[in-house]
Amino acid sequence: MSAETEASKYRATLWRKALERRGWKNLRKGFPMNFVIEYHVLYRGYLYSGRCKPLGLNSSDVMTAGSTLFLLRRTDMIQEGVWRRARDQGAETGRTARRFEL
C-alpha cells in the first residue's frame, strides 16, 4: 500500500472518529432496519449523505454498486461510514453525493 493510500485511510478514520465523538455510530457495527436513519459514507472519493428507512429499501440493491443499500450493507467495499437514528422519524428521505478528498 502506498504512503498516500495509508494517509488517506488514516484521515478517513479520523473523520469517522470525530463524528463518533458527536454521537454517530460506526456503520460496520450495524444499524436498526425499522427506523429512519441518517448516514454518511465515504466511497470511491465521494461522501454520500442521506436519510432512509433500511427496511423499505429494495433488498436486491445490495449488489448494485453505489445504491443506498450497497453503501449501508457492503461495509467491506466502503472506506468509512457512520449512522444515527433520525430525530424526526417522519422526515423526508433521500441522499446526496459530493466529491470528498481526504
Rank of each mutant, 00 (worst) to 15 (best):
N26H: 09
N26R: 10
L27Q: 00
L27N: 00
L27K: 01
K29I: 00
K29Y: 09
G30H: 04
G30E: 02
G30F: 05
F31C: 00
F31W: 09
F31H: 02
P32L: 04
P32I: 01
P32D: 02
M33S: 08
M33P: 00
M33D: 07
M33I: 01
N34S: 13
F35W: 11
F35D: 14
F35T: 12
F35K: 14
V36D: 02
V36L: 12
I37E: 01
I37H: 01
I37T: 02
I37M: 03
E38D: 07
E38C: 03
Y39M: 01
H40F: 11
V41Q: 02
L42G: 00
L42Q: 03
L42T: 03
Y43A: 09
R44C: 12
R44F: 10
Y46T: 12
Y46A: 14
L47G: 04
L47M: 12
Y48M: 03
S49L: 02
S49R: 08
G50Y: 01
G50V: 01
R51T: 05
K53W: 00
P54R: 01
L55E: 15
L55M: 10
L55N: 07
G56M: 15
L57H: 01
N58I: 03
S59A: 11
S60Y: 13
S60K: 13
D61T: 05
D61R: 00
D61I: 00
D61L: 02
D61P: 00
V62H: 06
M63C: 12
M63E: 14
T64N: 14
T64F: 13
T64R: 14
A65F: 13
A65Y: 13
A65H: 13
G66A: 09
G66M: 09
S67A: 09
S67C: 04
S67R: 02
T68V: 15
T68R: 12
T68A: 11
L69T: 06
F70M: 08
F70D: 07
F70E: 08
L71Y: 04
L71G: 05
L71C: 06
L71I: 08
L72E: 05
R73C: 13
R73D: 13
R73P: 03
R74N: 10
R74Q: 14
R74G: 06
T75P: 05
D76Q: 09
D76Y: 07
D76V: 06
D76L: 06
M77K: 13
M77G: 04
I78K: 08
I78A: 07
Q79S: 11
Q79A: 11
Q79C: 10
Q79F: 07
E80K: 10
E80F: 07
G81M: 04
V82Y: 07
W83R: 01
W83N: 03
W83G: 01
W83Q: 01
W83T: 01
R85C: 12
A86S: 15
D88L: 12
D88K: 15
Q89A: 13
Q89S: 12
G90C: 10
A91I: 08
A91L: 09
A91D: 12
A91W: 04
A91M: 08
A91S: 15
E92K: 14
E92Q: 15
E92F: 06
T93H: 04
G94P: 02
G94E: 04
G94H: 03
R95L: 10
R95N: 11
T96H: 06
A97R: 15
A97S: 15
A97Y: 08
A97E: 14
R98W: 06
